[in-house]
């Protein structure tokens, strides 16, 4: 704005603090709740300050989980989430880099056809083709496995497009110089193209990791064995059970489920913003 009046600035800060408070509220409440003892949440009205049961709640959830739900210990589910998220992220990055490389740097028959084949996956989110996809995975014997949790999700038109866009901006002379320098296709890919893409890869890693970690419907469909429950879908089994819900313990699990991706965003904010704004452009 042109002029900065002190009153205007004060109002701005007040407005923003209200906004931040609203954004923080649910998580603040969750953290407070997760530190309370079993009886304290039932008295109507939640305490505003942390209680003294944090350690025991978190330890209980981490080690053994909730007896009233089918979900295993949160430690186990966090581990499953981590494996799934990393497998999806690494898989997506790998196959997207390779296919973008093929589409940008080679001329070959059916190139346009393959491009559209990949493009079309944008239009087929798993939510709209649940049952047939479930059947395919079941027929392939991939239910209750990490392969089943991750492989069907690694095809990504978005990442392929981002890398394609980026490769198109790499100066033509990089390839030409590399070829004069005697580098073959894969050598060029490894020695020149990958190092040049490193910021884009990192930015996309952040976005894909969050995407992978937050998967919900997919693990819900293909895991019937609690051994493979991920934390995000496991929490739902804790509150949908009939009868008494120990909210203080559920909130401990919620905090644990939220922490890893939130930390990724906070510590890699610059890459996160880059990844987000560029994948959607």
């Amino acid at each position: 704005m042109v002029e900065h009046r002190p009153v205007g600035n004060l109002l701005t800060h007040v407005l923003l603090m209200l906004g931040v408070a609203m954004v923080l509220l649910p998580v603040y409440v969750a953290i407070i709740a997760s530190t309370q003892g079993p009886g304290e949440l039932m008295r109507g009205g939640l305490p505003l300050l942390p209680g003294g049961h944090a350690l025991e709640n978190y330890r209980l959830m981490w080690q053994s989980g909730l007896s009233s739900s089918s979900a295993p210990a949160a430690g186990k589910m966090l581990w499953n989430s981590l494996i799934m998220a990393l497998a999806i992220t690494v898989g997506k990055l790998a196959i997207s880099l390779l296919s973008a490389f093929a589409i940008v740097y080679f001329r070959f028959r059916f190139r346009l056809f393959f491009f559209w084949l990949i493009f079309i996956t944008l239009m087929l989110p798993v939510e709209v083709r649940i049952i047939p996809t479930f059947r395919v995975v079941a027929d392939l014997g991939m239910l209750n496995s990490f392969a089943g949790l991750s492989i069907p999700l690694i095809a990504s038109a978005t990442a392929t497009f981002l890398f394609r866009q980026f490769f198109m901006t790499v100066p033509e002379e990089m390839l030409e110089a590399a070829r004069v320098d005697g580098a073959g296709p894969m050598k060029f890919f490894r020695d020149i193209l990958l190092p040049l893409s490193i910021t884009n890869i990192a930015a996309l890693f952040v976005i894909m990791f969050i995407y992978g970690w937050n998967q919900y419907l997919w693990p819900l469909l293909i895991t019937t064995d609690p051994e493979y429950y991920t934390i995000v879908m496991g929490i739902q089994t804790m509150i949908n059970s009939e009868g008494y819900v120990p909210w203080h313990l559920v909130m401990a699990a919620v905090v644990m489920a939220t922490l890893p991706p939130v930390l990724v965003v906070l510590f890699m904010q610059r890459l996160f913003v880059k990844g987000l704004t560029e994948t959607e452009k």
């Binding site: 954004v23 998580v27 937050n214 929490i235 919620v254 939220t258 990724v264 904010q269 996160f272 987000l276």
Partner: peptide, 20 residues
């Protein structure tokens, strides 16, 4: 302070608001 909720899974967001 404003961007981190992006990292929260929709299901978790649901549970948080369900709770409050």
């Amino acid at each position: 302070l404003l961007v981190w909720p992006y990292a929260v899974a929709p299901a978790i967001a649901g549970v948080l608001w369900w709770f409050i």
